[in-house]
Amino acid sequence: MEVNALLMDPADNVVTCVTEVSAGTAVVYRKGEEMLTLTALEDIPYCHKIALVDIPEGGEVIKYGESLGKTSEAIPAGHWVSHNNLFSVPRDYDSEMLPL
């Protein structure tokens, strides 16, 4: 099976589809040496993300091993993750400062 999605970091809970994926078809991605698949439960546009696991409402979406923000609704595995169900949260800059 041909890879049609990319996992950027082993900790990620989404992959990015590099082709259009229709509902009911397989999303195929590589995790290290392993080839993994899941079934898309809705149409995923080119370059968009699909949830690998069930993400609860208010849960974090992880890509590049980092948080992209929080979900505004529960996103079950196989569903489309986009600006419609994911929002950015303000940063806590002061906590990021190093002691000098």
Partner: peptide, 18 residues
């Protein structure tokens, strides 16, 4: 992100920045 970024799969400023 801009509307074009969102259409291109970038959902939040954080995703764009990373």
């Amino acid at each position: 992100p801009t509307p074009g970024n969102k259409a291109g799969g970038l959902s939040t400023l954080d995703e764009k920045s990373l």
